[in-house]
Computed example of a mutant assay.
Amino acid sequence: MTPDSDPATATNLPIRSDADLAWVRHQVRQFAAEIGFGLVQQTKLVTAASELARNTLVHGGGGQAKITALVDGSTRGLRLSFIDTGPGIRDVELAMRDGYTTGGGLGLGLSGARRLVDEFTIDTKPGEGTVVTLVAWATGVAAARPESR
């Protein structure tokens, strides 16, 4: 899909603390509900966002989340970008493997987040930082229904 988005309507949220992680989760759920994502879709999106926000804080040293509403014809969605200026990911292919971890967890973070959304990209440069972007599309929701808000 080639979505339309207005950069002026993007919401930027800082990620510097555990409290910021909770705020990112809350905001993602609120945006998803307003757009018309069902409860299961909301939960998947919030789960992916939670993992990526935590990675931004823990591995990237903090950064920001950017939430952008998307419209493609009659379909609505959200683009979430998690941006840091940390050490970057040296081996993206390895980092995307189930079971790979640098933090002692289960190693399902990046790969698990990828499975929960429609589109997933990583742009990283060692020593310069990482941008992880995901897109999720609401199913069964027409964009031209303002009365559903």
Rank of each mutant, 00 (worst) to 15 (best):
V71T: 02
K44Q: 07
G99N: 14
L108V: 08
L13N: 04
R90W: 03
L106N: 10
A48M: 13
L39V: 05
G103D: 07
R76S: 06
A95E: 01
A143W: 03
R114T: 00
A113Q: 07
A8F: 10
D123G: 09
Y100S: 05
V135Q: 07
R16G: 10
R29D: 05
G127L: 14
T75W: 13
N12L: 06
R16N: 08
P7F: 11
L108N: 05
G77H: 06
L94A: 13
P126A: 11
S81V: 00
T139E: 11
T101Q: 09
E147I: 11
V92K: 13
G62W: 07
S5W: 06
I89Y: 01
I67P: 01
Q42E: 08
A143D: 06
V46H: 03
R145I: 01
S5T: 10
K66V: 00
E51K: 12
R29Q: 05
D18W: 04
G109V: 02
G112T: 00
A95K: 04
G61N: 14
G61T: 02
T130G: 03
P126D: 08
R54D: 04
A22C: 07
I67Y: 01
A53D: 00
V92I: 11
R54V: 01
R115F: 14
A8K: 15
D18T: 12
P126Y: 13
W23M: 09
Q64I: 01
Q41C: 12
Q64L: 05
E93C: 12
E51A: 13
G99S: 14
D91M: 12
L116E: 04
R29M: 06
G62K: 13
P126K: 14
P87I: 08
V58M: 07
D118R: 15
G62N: 09
N55F: 04
W23V: 02
L21E: 05
V71R: 03
F31H: 11
R54K: 14
V135I: 06
L94S: 07
A136H: 09
A138S: 06
Q27I: 03
A95M: 08
R25A: 05
R76T: 02
D118G: 15
V141C: 07
E119P: 04
G38F: 03
L39S: 13
G109P: 03
R115N: 08
G129H: 02
V132L: 09
L70H: 01
G99Q: 15
G112L: 11
T139S: 12
R114F: 12
W23H: 09
G63V: 02
Q41R: 09
P14T: 01
G88W: 06
L94M: 12
F82T: 00
R29A: 07
A138G: 00
G104K: 08
A19I: 10
A19W: 14
A33C: 11
T75L: 12
V24Y: 02
S111A: 08
L78V: 06
S74R: 12
G105P: 03
T124L: 10
D84S: 04
A65Q: 04
G88V: 01
E128A: 15
